[in-house]
Design a protein around this nucleic acid. Sequence first.
DNA 1: ATAATGAATTTTGAATACAATATTCAAAAT
DNA 2: ATTTTGAATATTGTATTCAAAATTCATTAT
Lengths: 229, 229
Amino acid sequence: MKNIGIEYENLDQKVYQIVKSMIENRQLLPGEKIPQEKLAGELGISRTPLISALKFLEHEKLVEVKPRRGFFVRLFSIEELISIFEIREVLEGLAARRAARSINEKQIQELRKIFADFTSAENLKDYHAYSKADRRFHNFITEIASREFLTTILQTFNIISLAYQYANSEGLIREPHDTIEDHLKIIDAICDHDPDSAEFLMREHLEKTITKLKTIVNQDQEQTKEVNV
Amino acid sequence: MKNIGIEYENLDQKVYQIVKSMIENRQLLPGEKIPQEKLAGELGISRTPLISALKFLEHEKLVEVKPRRGFFVRLFSIEELISIFEIREVLEGLAARRAARSINEKQIQELRKIFADFTSAENLKDYHAYSKADRRFHNFITEIASREFLTTILQTFNIISLAYQYANSEGLIREPHDTIEDHLKIIDAICDHDPDSAEFLMREHLEKTITKLKTIVNQDQEQTKEVNV
DNA sequence: ATAATGAATTTTGAATACAATATTCAAAAT
DNA sequence: ATTTTGAATATTGTATTCAAAATTCATTAT
């Protein structure tokens, strides 16, 4: 007997996707309490599958439980965000390495297409378009590289990185004209099947973002000092 | 009003720990179906918190859901195990780097103590003791290094690495006399506050394990070929 | 003997129920 | 005016319930 192909799916998973995207799109804001009864009502389900989904998200650290208090959208300090970027640095480095090992002709075509529109300084001013390309770039490399585990972890971290504070409204931390060169060099290394360079360049790329984030921390501290004086 | 200190704890978490350790100790074996009613009965709880715990474990990939079929202890192929070791390689590399940055005197004392008993070839023959020290070594570095995220991910991967097939009964993949040198060099680098070397050596250490695992895959394939001929 | 069928049994997924705890808010005390 | 109190209300954590689906197993057909 073969698998007929009708994949039964639990409600959990659907609800999980919905709530996750609500956090990503800032319909639920960091720090906010998640109203179970209300949200379940809006989604037309009972609390049971909603709680399941929230527990999932708890484990991904997108949501926090305070026992007997409820679920809250997780709030990250900039230090935690830096910690996450350090993990992204090594994992995306690994992804780039794997991608360089395994990329095929079709994928090379597609990877090169991602930033094809951003050749002029003029086009680089379209933050929204560039931010989309940026996400696509990181996700596509992960896709090429990855077996299950890496994808799951990185998806979560990318959401945290993008959906949270400390970035301009499009989720960019560094300016397009500053990052475009990095991106193109990484693409070249992957398409040339050069794993060592691919990993090295990807790490360097994310390291620069971390440096930028650290300057933001320092500025914050300076300001706080001034206020306290 | 201050927090009186009575931290309410949900059942979920306790059950999660119990089931997790049952998998780690091979009381529940990879591939086995998890009998909800029976297990809940044995633990003296209803299915609700058990399911919660299983969903947690699903997310950690220690458990797999087949909708309308139930929960099963996850079974890993050696290819997946290699993929996990690649992730461990970069993450523990990061942990070693961070540890070298932040380790203090007291932690240095403790880190150096871990392999202090394994100076003679004779002592290295005690696989059980060495395996315990090995775990302690990796866990302690993660502890020193880590903020929340890294710890969570690595804990899961360590369980997978240790609790599964493809290793001798103590969970060792390489021989003690082979790995002891690596361990001591890494410890030196961390205690010398040398982040670059610490990361490099830790990665090298895990890379050797990956190489060993790959030879196991190849042997398997050879054998399969022979059988098929 | 082996395979196919389907009724009886078990298990799952999700809603509902309910006791324990937390929150709110108006009235009383400081 | 502010703080404290506690009864009314709402929410949480877990158990229970129940329809739908999967599994088992005895019976019949090949």
